[in-house]
Design a binder for these strands. Structure first.
Lengths: 143, 143
DNA sequence: TATTGTTATACTCTATAACTATA
DNA sequence: TATAGTTATAGAGTATAACAATA
């Protein structure tokens, strides 16, 4: 009972594998829908919101110039639209188009379909226990 | 006790947040070391191995042409070296340099430092329980 | 002057297709 | 012919710096 590092290595590995599998699933879903991971994040972020360019860049952790290009490409593909703000003429608001909205909905369903068979490996009690442990670990976590 | 979807949503969220936090940590570590995520994966993959270009491309899930460019840049930065195989003159073997090796070691330490404070949010018994649940979930998982 | 967004530029990562050298 | 690797080309994603319009 004196091998904390060895024990932790097992947990770190399990967490890493979990992250890897979920990220792989996201990558596959993006590819299946002919989107990049970044465009996928963009669509998810815009659901129910119409942020300004600057807010959106901050939310996605990107430079404003990077976001300009991203929105250019998303707009060219018909997923989003730019709307000039009326109160401040410098500001542009970004919103999903109907097409972008339905694509975002489809992505969300795909994610659910991908994740469900994984969590079904656990019975309901275990699923609940896992949720509680993860929430406890993430909860008061370091910033 | 008849809301399976709502319950699952909580678990899916917790898993997604876990993956997000771990991926963010990796991104930050890569950036702090002035590396891309791909170069970071490359260094990790090469520890203790000297694969052929084709094997390495397969391992990383990349096209051989993509790998050529990746290795060009890593070589230019002194992290890896190309070694022609003697048994088959078409083949190139890739290996870490001493510099690449020490960088890979530093990265590994950085990852441990980043993850430890997160899992320290749980007491030892909870950590073990979490490991068991994750392994159960991942274990006989779908291909 | 300060802020919002775009443009210019440059680099990494990625793939497809064509090519070279070896088997 | 088949295989290993490179090169040519194209596009997405990213950042920094300079710029235009508005506040």
């Amino acid at each position: 009972m004196e091998e904390p590092d060895t024990e932790q290595a097992g947990l770190i590995d399990a967490l890493a594998q979990t992250a890897f599998i979920l990220t792989s699933a996201l990558n596959r879903i993006a590819a299946d829908n002919d989107l990049s991971i970044t465009q996928l994040r963009l669509l998810g972020t815009l659901r129910g919101r119409s942020p300004q360019m600057k807010q959106l860049a901050g939310h996605l952790g990107l430079e404003k110039s990077t976001l300009s290009g991203l929105i250019d490409r998303a707009q060219r593909r018909g997923f989003v639209q730019r709307r000039p703000s009326e109160s401040d003429k410098r500001v542009i608001e970004v919103a999903l188009t109907a097409d972008g909205e339905s694509t975002a909905r489809r992505i969300e369903a795909d994610v659910r379909v991908a994740v469900e068979p994984i969590i079904r490996q656990l019975d309901p009690a275990d699923r609940d226990a896992l949720r509680v442990l993860l929430e406890r670990m993430l909860g008061p976590a370091p910033s």
